[in-house]
Design a protein around this nucleic acid. Structure first.
Lengths: 177, 177
DNA sequence: GGATCCATGTAACACGTTACATGATTGA
DNA sequence: TCAATCATGTAACGTGTTACATGGATCC
């Protein structure tokens, strides 16, 4: 997955409909996007600079209070074009989900190993908590039909994420008891 | 996930019961481990050297044919210890599965966007093919109760992987038709 | 007055991929 | 003899994290 610079498209995509600062974008990674992507502010600010140099986004400096300068970014025509090109390109190749827990489990050979129950219990807690969080997001963002139609992609992937957690929890339960 | 050097534990873990060459390990990443982890030979060879320097594994050079030298690695006591420590440490923090398709979908807002069906169709093919492959592996590796008991962790994660693909496919079908 | 958030940046490092490189062995 | 596979390595680069760094604004 590395080497494709997908952060580029995320940033352009997030700026598509509304100008935002680097800090705004950073906050989005902590909430909205955080469920399926991550990036630190250090990486975001650098990438924004690079995207501006390459002409995919443009910046304007706004004033906040009377001293702090905020840099707002907007998408250029060129940026809009590459975003669309990317969206239309078949993705191909399923990604490998590197999951440390899965890895640990792989190296446990004996069915009666005491650690299995401990590990499954921990995962149960983590996934149950994530499931709850996702369900709350679903309620908050997509309570009516209109909101679903307007951000349909987001609705779809939230639905997938919830199903996935439910399945994961089902799997754990089967082997935990 | 990065910064934890999990490759280290994979290599030690794979060498635990049997001495292997770098090439053997590379091959395992193409088959067995490939379902849930990836690594290129360039990274493997370097990591093996580092692990030997740090005393986690030891090497012996064998001859193959009459000219080629193969380097076999085995795990040391120190290596066995860190592997066990790792296995006993709670994993914590669910990983973020960075999936390019999910990302693209997020940026599609309109329910009637033609691209949704195309994207879902492509994913259907990919996941159906992966599911088939996983099911074949399951049949091959775990046909009887005894094989399950001997590599129980592997059986568990293969079962999870299959359920996950089934769920994914179910999700696609729901919105594709 | 102090904590927390807003806002932006740089530097060092770790992880992972791609490309370059070499040469022997095996089987058709 | 030619292709594929076995077998091992290095170099350059791209991506992402951690740590370092600064200073204003807001709220209690």
């Amino acid at each position: 997955m590395a080497q494709k610079n997908l952060l580029k498209y995320i940033l352009i995509g997030l700026l598509e409909n509304e100008k935002k600062t680097g800090y705004d974008l950073k906050k989005l990674f902590e909430t909205e996007i955080g469920e399926f992507w991550s990036a630190k502010h250090s990486q975001i600010y650098l990438e924004l600079k690079r995207l501006e140099e390459q002409g995919y986004i443009a910046s304007e400096t706004g004033l906040f209070g009377n001293k702090i300068e905020k840099t707002y970014y907007t998408v250029t025509e060129k940026g809009r074009r590459v975003l669309n090109e990317w969206e239309e390109t078949p993705t191909g190749e399923l990604p490998i989900n590197k999951d440390e827990f899965i890895l640990k489990l792989y190296f446990i050979h004996n069915k009666n190993d005491k650690r299995i129950k401990e590990m499954l219990s921990e995962q149960y807690r983590l996934h149950a908590s994530k499931l709850f969080h996702l369900q709350e997001r679903m309620k908050l963002l997509f309570k009516d039909e209109i909101s679903r139609t307007k951000n349909y992609g987001h609705f779809l992937i939230l639905d997938l994420a919830i199903r996935r957690e439910q399945e994961y929890i089902g799997w754990i339960k089967q082997y935990l008891y």
